[in-house]
Measured scan of single mutants.
Amino acid sequence: MQRVNMIMAESPGLITICLLGYLLSAECTVFLDHENANKILNRPKRYNSGKLEEFVQGNLERECMEEKCSFEEAREVFENTERTTEFWKQYVDGDQCESNPCLNGGSCKDDINSYECWCPFGFEGKNCELDVTCNIKNGRCEQFCKNSADNKVVCSCTEGYRLAENQKSCEPAVPFPCGRVSVSQTSKLTRAETVFPDVDYVNSTEAETILDNITQSTQSFNDFTRVVGGEDAKPGQFPWQVVLNGKVDAFCGGSIVNEKWIVTAAHCVETGVKITVVAGEHNIEETEHTEQKRNVIRIIPHHNYNAAINKYNHDIALLELDEPLVLNSYVTPICIADKEYTNIFLKFGSGYVSGWGRVFHKGRSALVLQYLRVPLVDRATCLRSTKFTIYNNMFCAGFHEGGRDSCQGDSGGPHVTEVEGTSFLTGIISWGEECAMKGKYGIYTKVSRYVNWIKEKTKLT
């Protein structure tokens, strides 16, 4: 034993070699072989497995989906700052455009905790909710729209109204504003409101030439003092309507412009014939205590009207009353817009006519005020429907199939267009061939041609 100890002390290297040989010859039971080890760690190889990531292109799944990435790591994937920024906006807080917040056709661009709407022409605001041009839906104005110097929408209202708090709607500024039905039992019968379409306001006024200088022999019209197929109006439903009495009662109609003036057809009036105007009328054979009678003290036909040349060209006249009318729910003026808007309103496509005229061709006159909704007829169809001249200051309205029309005794009465609950004068009943005849239409004086003249002559002093 002493000898062994001496050998170990003198030859430590020998001992180490012996131990190493023993270990190498022993069977290893701690580690699995290569094949079995792979069965336990069965993990798919990654895209760049075996390579240094710093030297390969980034992978979106590896960089940002398996674990949260930084902007720089995302930049490695896209290799483009702009594309990385677009991805980053949604990656950080989701897609803010998912709810489609942009209105009126706006395009949404996502941002971090926010979004941006790219608005089409005519709109602005956070969600493109603000109209900035009158060309689109009248700028959301209830009545009139004008573009300011910086191309912003400025709404306005006709006389007797003021802008509401929203700067879009119009509200009454006087007790009985024009064009409004205020009798409670008839307010439910107000005709369907007309909503502004998209309009090209630059070209809204037709490029028409008034044929002022045409000389033409007097034409022989049949029954051209021209509501057939209409309905009984309720008291106060058309408070701007008046009836004219002269040699015979209810020979023509008219509309209240203001307390002192009536507008009617020029062919209705004769110099030297006494005319009485009755406002607030409903049943011409009954006294309903809503009527107001006034005498006409002055007749002003349009300066281009000449019955000797043509009885229905420039067929418009103004009547001055001896005493002002007292405005109330049964006696209310009709609204008159400017030339541009009167023309736009007419193009809405349908209007209402009213009167006490004959209820059928050569038949009896109506006792109760009649009204009828009539569609506008395109000019080409209008011209083809008659052998008589249709001037540019006239328009056609009615039904091709016949059966409904204005008729004798309705002449001078109103053709009105309702705009968001307020009625505007767009025409004056003038003439036609018979009444409600198939293929024939009622012919009306186009008020847009005469609004400046009306307003100039009827100013209240």
Results as ranks from 00 to 15, higher is better:
42 N>G: 04
48 N>R: 00
459 K>N: 15
128 C>S: 03
379 R>W: 09
378 D>S: 10
9 A>C: 12
286 E>F: 10
241 Q>V: 10
104 N>H: 13
383 L>K: 12
454 I>V: 06
395 F>W: 01
406 S>L: 15
408 Q>E: 14
274 K>V: 07
108 C>F: 02
201 Y>M: 12
202 V>N: 15
46 R>L: 02
109 K>E: 10
403 G>C: 07
61 E>A: 04
447 V>T: 06
44 P>S: 11
270 E>F: 08
307 A>H: 08
119 C>F: 02
159 E>W: 06
378 D>F: 03
96 Q>T: 07
418 E>Q: 12
447 V>S: 03
260 K>V: 04
116 E>H: 08
397 A>C: 03
163 L>M: 06
85 T>M: 13
14 L>E: 02
242 V>P: 00
179 G>K: 00
92 V>G: 12
220 S>C: 06
402 G>K: 15
251 F>H: 12
158 T>A: 10
380 A>K: 11
37 A>I: 03
93 D>T: 15
276 T>K: 07
18 C>P: 03
236 G>Y: 05
286 E>N: 09
393 N>W: 05
45 K>G: 01
267 H>M: 03
67 E>Y: 00
150 D>Q: 10
400 H>M: 11
245 N>E: 07
222 N>M: 14
165 E>Y: 09
331 V>E: 00
323 E>A: 12
322 D>H: 05
113 N>E: 13
97 C>H: 03
55 F>D: 10
237 Q>E: 06
432 G>C: 10
298 R>M: 04
105 G>V: 03
449 R>F: 15
447 V>F: 01
362 K>M: 09
233 A>G: 08
20 L>C: 10
250 A>C: 07
261 W>D: 00
39 K>P: 05
96 Q>H: 13
440 K>F: 05
80 N>I: 04
240 W>D: 00
290 T>Q: 10
435 C>D: 04
26 A>V: 13
213 N>I: 07
88 W>Y: 09
96 Q>E: 15
434 E>Q: 14
185 Q>G: 13
251 F>K: 08
341 Y>M: 11
27 E>T: 12
87 F>N: 03
144 F>M: 06
323 E>I: 09
60 L>C: 00
120 P>L: 12
348 F>H: 09
449 R>D: 15
26 A>H: 04
204 S>L: 13
131 D>I: 10
297 I>L: 09
33 D>E: 09
30 V>M: 12
241 Q>C: 05
55 F>S: 14
115 Y>D: 04
434 E>F: 10
202 V>D: 08
330 Y>F: 13
201 Y>D: 11
223 D>W: 07
113 N>Q: 14
316 I>H: 01
241 Q>I: 14
250 A>R: 09
73 E>H: 01
120 P>M: 09
428 I>T: 03
79 E>G: 15
34 H>K: 12
328 N>I: 00
270 E>V: 11
279 A>I: 00
356 W>E: 02
330 Y>C: 03
339 K>R: 15
215 T>L: 07
271 T>E: 15
87 F>R: 02
166 N>E: 04
222 N>R: 11
166 N>D: 08
454 I>K: 01
399 F>H: 10
453 W>H: 00
196 F>S: 15
327 L>V: 07
24 L>T: 10
446 K>C: 05
364 R>A: 15
244 L>S: 00
428 I>H: 03
301 P>N: 07
450 Y>A: 01
134 C>A: 03
295 N>P: 04
175 P>M: 10
75 R>Q: 07
144 F>T: 02
65 M>Y: 11
247 K>G: 10
113 N>V: 09
251 F>Q: 08
93 D>H: 12
422 T>G: 02
10 E>A: 13
386 T>H: 10
121 F>H: 15
182 S>Q: 07
450 Y>L: 00
248 V>E: 09
355 G>E: 04
274 K>F: 06
401 E>A: 15
169 S>P: 01
145 C>I: 02
363 G>F: 06
244 L>N: 01
396 C>Q: 01
